[in-house]
C-alpha cells in the first residue's frame, strides 16, 4: 500500500480504536445533540415547527454544537501527552495527518448526526423518511466542510492557551456561510422539493468543502509545528 494512504488510514484507525475503547466523545456528542433538540422543543413550545425554516436550522445548530465537542476531544487526545509530536516524528507527510484526523472527525460527527435525525424527527414530528437520500447527501456535504475547517482550526485551538474555549469562537464565524447554505438546502429537501432547487446552495457548499480541504492540506503542517 502506498505510504501516504497507510499514514491516513493508520491515523483514522487509531482514532476510531481510541474512541471505541472509551466511547466518551460519541456519548457526549450524542447526548449534547439530543439536549439541543429538546431545549429547542421546550423553548419554542411549538406543537409543530415549521419544516421549511425552523426545523433545518435547529438540526444544523445541533450538529454544529455537538461537532465542536467532538473536534475538541479529537485534539485534546493528541495534545495530552504530546502524542501529536510522535505523529510528526513519523516518516509520513504531514498533510496525511490532516486527512486522517479529518476523516475520523467526519465519521464520528456523521454517526452522531445519524443518531440525531431520528430523534429529531420523532420529537419534533418532522417527517424525514420520504427524503432520506437527499437529506443524507446534504448532510454529508455540509459535514465534510465542517470537518475540514474544524480539523484545521481545532489543531490551532488545542495548541493555544484557551484550548477548548477558543474553538467555537474561531470556527463559527467561518462556518456561518455554510451553515446558512446547509440550512437552506436541508429546508428545501425537508419540504419535499426536488434537490435541484437547492442547486446553488449545494454548489456553494461544494466550493467551501474544496477550498478548506485544500487549505487544511496545505497549511496543517504550519499548525502542527512547534
Amino acid at each position: 500500500m502506498n505510504a501516504y494512504l497507510r499514514g491516513v488510514f493508520g491515523v483514522l484507525r487509531k482514532d476510531l480504536r481510541l474512541e471505541w475503547r472509551s466511547r466518551e466523545a460519541m456519548t457526549a456528542m450524542a447526548f449534547f445533540s439530543l439536549l439541543v433538540v429538546v431545549l429547542f422543543g421546550f423553548s419554542f413550545q411549538t406543537e409543530k415547527i415549521d419544516v421549511r425554516t425552523t426545523a433545518p436550522g435547529l438540526l444544523w445548530v445541533a450538529f454544529s454544537f455537538s461537532g465542536v465537542l467532538g473536534l475538541n476531544r479529537s485534539f485534546s487526545l493528541e495534545r495530552e501527552n504530546g502524542a501529536l509530536r510522535a505523529l510528526m516524528l513519523a516518516p509520513l507527510d504531514r498533510s496525511a495527518i490532516f486527512v486522517g484526523k479529518m476523516l475520523s472527525n467526519l465519521v464520528m460527527i456523521g454517526l452522531v448526526e445519524a443518531l440525531t435525525v431520528p430523534l429529531f424527527s420523532v420529537l419534533l414530528r418532522v417527517p424525514v423518511l420520504s427524503c432520506l437520500p437527499q437529506l443524507t447527501l446534504v448532510t454529508c456535504l455540509g459535514t465534510l466542510g465542517f470537518a475540514a475547517v474544524g480539523t484545521l482550526l481545532a489543531g490551532i485551538s488545542s495548541g493555544s492557551r484557551m484550548r477548548e474555549v477558543l474553538l467555537p469562537l474561531i470556527l463559527y464565524p467561518i462556518w456561518i456561510p455554510i451553515l446558512v447554505a446547509s440550512v437552506e438546502a436541508t429546508g428545501t429537501v425537508l419540504s419535499g422539493k426536488p434537490l435541484s432547487e437547492a442547486g446553488d446552495w449545494l454548489t456553494l457548499i461544494g466550493v467551501f468543502d474544496l477550498v478548506f480541504l485544500g487549505v487544511g492540506f496545505l497549511f496543517f503542517e504550519a499548525v502542527l509545528e512547534e
Binding site: 487526545l77 504530546g82 502524542a83 510522535a86
Partner: peptide
C-alpha cells in the same frame, strides 16, 4: 521528551503497533 508521546487510552502494545505502522 519529558512527555510520553503515547496515547494513554490505548495499551502499550497497541501504541507500539501504531508506531510500527507509521514507520512501516
Amino acid at each position: 521528551s519529558h512527555e510520553s508521546l503515547l496515547y494513554h487510552g490505548l495499551s502499550g502494545r497497541e501504541n507500539l503497533r501504531f508506531t510500527a505502522e507509521l514507520f512501516a
